[in-house]
């Protein structure tokens, strides 16, 4: 019983939050110095983060393992503290002031969840393509490059592009799309965009095919976080006035 109480006290405590945030900062600092000088990090996006972590030596990944652990405990601590705060302050008249920090916390949890999903399932592949090239997207889906249109200004700078693509299944086209700057082609969780291109001697494009399962959750988390923090600031200003 005593151990259970100690565990719950640990998770309900703001001190735990502060210690965890302090440790998180230390690990991020360590990573900021390890990462730039380590060649292995060039491959970090090619496979899901958790798969990558298992293939690389611990001497360069220990801080990422540490971050994962700290974020997991921090997520639990956030949930416990939010519940405790709502229960303790439930009789306050300004419920928005009570609820807005919790909305920020929910937004944070969504972001953590997004990163978790991406760490499990995100991937990135590159393909050099020309007009007529076929790229395998999934077991029964092919991407065909129909047309490459690169706009170049008088001085030789690339000002834009439009890559017409078709999705094929069993040899039949079922979807057409155009990839432009900041306008990727999105299909079945894959995000296909242009990483680089060249106009001469033959028009060629370096396509980037990303799978980012956490993107939508990160967006939802971001919106909730902002909604909470803006409400909190407005309410604090009102209360002070």
């Amino acid at each position: 019983m005593k151990i259970i109480k100690q565990i719950t006290d640990f998770f309900f405590s703001l001190s735990t939050t502060l210690w965890l945030l302090g440790l998180l900062l230390l690990l991020l600092f360590a990573g900021a110095f390890i990462m730039p000088g380590t060649q292995e990090f060039q491959e970090i996006h090619s496979i899901p983060l958790f798969d990558w972590l298992q293939t690389e030596p611990l001497k360069i990944t220990w801080w990422l393992w540490g971050l994962t652990g700290i974020l997991a405990i921090l997520a639990l601590n956030t949930i416990f503290c939010s519940i405790e705060s709502i229960v303790r302050k439930r009789k306050v008249t300004q419920w928005l002031l009570l609820i807005s920090p919790q909305i920020i916390h929910i937004g944070f949890l969504f972001m953590i969840f997004a990163h978790l999903l991406s760490a499990i399932g995100a991937s990135q592949e590159l393909a050099v393509v020309r007009e007529g090239s076929l790229v395998k997207i999934s077991a029964n889906t092919l991407l065909k490059i129909e047309d490459i249109n690169i706009n170049i200004d008088y001085y030789g700078y690339i000002t834009g592009w439009a890559i017409s693509v078709e999705y094929l299944s069993d040899g039949k086209t079922f979807k057409k799309d155009i990839i432009k700057p900041n306008n990727p082609s999105v299909h079945m969780g894959f995000n296909i965009n242009v990483k680089d291109l060249r106009a001469y001697p033959v028009e060629a494009v370096l396509l980037q095919i990303n799978k980012e399962p956490g993107a939508l959750w990160a967006l939802i988390g971001g919106v909730l976080f902002m909604a909470g923090i803006v409400t909190l600031i407005i309410l604090k200003i009102k209360v002070e006035r």
């Binding site: 990462m35 990090f41 970090i44 996006h45 997004a114 990163h115 991406s118 995100a122 990135q124 700057p181 900041n182 306008n183 990727p184 995000n191 296909i192 965009n193 990483k195 980037q208 095919i209 990303n210 980012e212 956490g214 993107a215 990160a218 967006l219």
Partner: peptide, 9 residues
């Protein structure tokens, strides 16, 4: 939108 991922290491 530009590179297909919201987070780059």
């Amino acid at each position: 939108l530009a590179w297909g991922t919201y987070w780059v290491w």
